[in-house]
Amino acid sequence: MRKMHEPGRYEIRIEGHLEKRWADWFEGLTITALDNGETLLTGSVVDQAALHGLLRKVRDLGLPLLSVIHVAPEGE
């Protein structure tokens, strides 16, 4: 069982396209513009507080949040 203070890998899906220049602001997450007009942010997040900080940044940009998925590491 994963604890809330442990790092995890996440996929955050938002409506609209974000340019890759936002990667530093999103703490190094990989930004992928999808063909359907959505953006996928993927990468490691150190803990739940950092995840909530990333979600606040999505809100501050006024982009609709579509989903947040914790991606289990291989072998889990």
Rank of each mutant, 00 (worst) to 15 (best):
L66E: 01
L51A: 09
E15A: 15
M1H: 09
T42Q: 14
P64S: 12
L55F: 10
T30P: 03
R9S: 09
R2P: 09
P64H: 10
R21N: 06
T30H: 15
D35K: 15
E76H: 11
T32H: 08
E74M: 06
R2I: 08
T32C: 03
T32G: 00
S44N: 14
D47F: 10
Y10S: 01
R59N: 08
I69S: 12
V71M: 07
L51Q: 04
W22I: 06
L41A: 04
K20N: 05
E27W: 11
L40I: 06
V46E: 10
G62E: 02
L40C: 05
L65E: 03
M1Q: 07
G75P: 05
T30A: 12
I69W: 07
A23S: 14
G8R: 13
E76K: 12
I12R: 01
Q48Y: 11
D60A: 11
D35A: 14
A33V: 06
Y10N: 00
P64T: 13
Y10L: 03
G37A: 02
H5G: 13
L54C: 05
L34I: 00
E15D: 12
A33F: 00
E11D: 14
E76S: 14
G28I: 09
E15W: 09
K20A: 11
E38T: 13
H52Q: 15
D60H: 13
S67D: 08
D47C: 09
A33P: 00
L41R: 03
V68H: 05
R2G: 00
V71W: 01
L55N: 03
L41W: 03
L41D: 01
K3N: 11
I31G: 02
S67L: 03
M1D: 03
A72K: 15
E15F: 11
G16W: 06
A49S: 14
L18D: 02
V46L: 12
A33H: 06
Q48I: 12
A49V: 12
H52R: 14
R13N: 01
R56A: 10
R56C: 07
G16N: 02
G53F: 06
T42K: 12
V45G: 04
V71Y: 01
L65N: 06
A49I: 11
G16P: 01
V68F: 08
L40S: 09
H70N: 08
K3M: 11
R2V: 06
I69C: 11
A23F: 03
K57L: 11
L65W: 06
R59P: 01
T32K: 14
W25K: 08
E27D: 15
E19S: 15
V71N: 00
H5R: 15
